[in-house]
Design a binder for these strands. Structure first.
Length: 407
DNA sequence: CGTTTTTGACCGGCGC
DNA sequence: GCGCCGGTCAAAAACG
């Protein structure tokens, strides 16, 4: 698990832990977490709640079948990445942006992982979606998929339903973002044109308009679902600032929960990314945010304290959250064909931090985007990581140098 | 005045 | 067919 070079840093590990702990206490950010890529975020939440007996802080997702380890058995989604944040009320969002908090993933995610991020948000179209054969192969594996998931498969849409947390997300998220998003938006545009034509013929009532708007979708095909990415955040604030601009378009009461679910849509034209925000009924301090789709544009705004446009949300003030041990095996493959397990990385028990990472992470997800940013090639930390990978990320570069000199 | 939020109505999918 | 439920729409209200 540890390479030789990594082992060389072990003598300073204890210092690193202390250093980390102090730093951790200073910024008062506790990470609990639980990030997950999934087919259906709501199901993830439900499953999480069902699994309440497992303290979130102690949740572990192993290389094994996530269903077995997480209680998600039979679920249609894959756990691909896991991690959560807890934000103390004192900090809230005044000093630390959501992205700042998400920055903790800089140490969860390997440089190799970020290599998989290299494709810019506005890059040329990504590789084509998985071939039908690949999709069908997944379908063979998935015996318990729900009907909509099957339809997605048939449509060549992303599916992460395999109980093997492998490359389905890898194939899907980075591979299909624009294609899926654009196709859906273009479909909507086509529908709009149809609707306009229909309005010319008869403009009786507003309700008729609404019906016309919705009917073409159901006639042609089932509404397509984008890949979803959900995470749980312990926060007093419902709508987390992730750098993008969102417009709320709906709110619904959640069954068996006193807290409503809010629906947001990215306000950028042509970007169909949506997100849902709701509080856990069992732990009101936990906010569950589910992203759907992928942004087709740079991060439009620059949060507190930053100046200028952040092309990829990189303008956020970097508040480096505590770092964590990153096992060598966390380094993920560039080859999306390879299966990638949702590795788990855990710090000392007192920190109660658990996270996983996968090369399937996509830069359209703010948390991961931030992680990517923090691992930019210009970062000395990044270069160090590229050299050594393990543990070094939690040890200041200077400290590592001193340690080596002592040897 | 433009943008965002609120909120009731509506739609499609699904189970019975 | 009916009812439930998640998701969406769009007019009205609120906001800056």
């Amino acid at each position: 698990m540890f390479s030789k070079s990594n082992a060389q840093t072990l003598p300073v590990l204890s210092h690193s832990v202390i250093y980390l702990f102090i730093f951790w206490c200073n910024i008062r950010i506790k990470t609990l977490g639980l990030f997950c890529f999934l087919k259906d975020g709501s199901e993830c939440v439900k499953s999480m709640e069902k699994k309440k007996e497992n303290s979130m802080a102690n949740m572990r997702f192993s290389d094994e079948n996530p269903s077995a380890t997480t209680g998600f058995g039979g679920s249609i989604f894959d756990m691909v990445a896991v991690g959560t944040h807890e934000v103390s009320g004192a900090d809230k969002w005044g000093a630390l942006g959501f992205m700042d908090l998400l920055g903790i993933h800089q140490d969860f995610v390997s440089p190799s992982l970020f290599d998989s991020f290299q494709t810019p948000i506005l890059s040329p179209p990504p590789p084509p979606p998985p071939s039908s054969s690949e999709v069908l192969l997944h379908q063979d594996i998935l015996h318990e998929q729900k009907q909509d998931t099957k339809q997605q498969l048939l449509q060549g849409l992303p599916s992460q339903a395999s109980t093997i947390p492998e490359s389905s997300e890898v194939l899907n998220n980075p591979a299909t973002p624009n294609s899926s998003s654009i196709s859906s938006s273009s479909n909507e545009a086509a529908n709009d044109e149809q609707n306009k034509a229909g309005d010319d013929e008869e403009q009786d009532q507003d309700q008729d308009k609404t019906k016309k708007l919705l009917k073409p979708k159901k006639k042609n095909q089932k509404r397509q679902r984008e890949p979803r990415f959900a995470f749980m955040t312990k926060s007093e604030v419902d709508h987390l600032d992730d750098g993008y601009r969102w417009r709320k378009y709906g709110q619904k009461a959640v069954k068996n929960s006193p807290y409503p679910r809010s629906y947001y849509r990215c306000t950028t034209a042509g970007c169909g990314v949506k997100k849902r925000v709701e509080r856990s009924s069992e732990d009101p301090t936990i906010v569950v945010t589910t992203y759907e789709g992928q942004h087709t544009h740079p991060c439009p705004i620059t949060p507190r304290g930053s100046v200028g446009i952040a092309p990829d949300c990189s303008g956020f003030a970097a508040v480096s959250a505590p770092s964590f041990v990153v096992p060598q095996r966390q380094y993920l493959h560039h080859n999306h064909q390879q299966h990638v397990q949702p590795y788990i990385y855990t710090t000392s028990p007192s920190m109660n931090i658990t996270t996983t990472a996968s090369s399937s992470l996509n830069s359209s997800f703010p948390a991961l985007l931030e992680a990517k940013r923090l691992f930019s090639p210009n970062s000395s930390t990044s270069s160090s990581l590229r050299d050594h990978g393990l543990l070094q990320d939690i040890v200041p570069t200077q400290m590592r140098k001193e340690a080596k000199e002592e040897e």
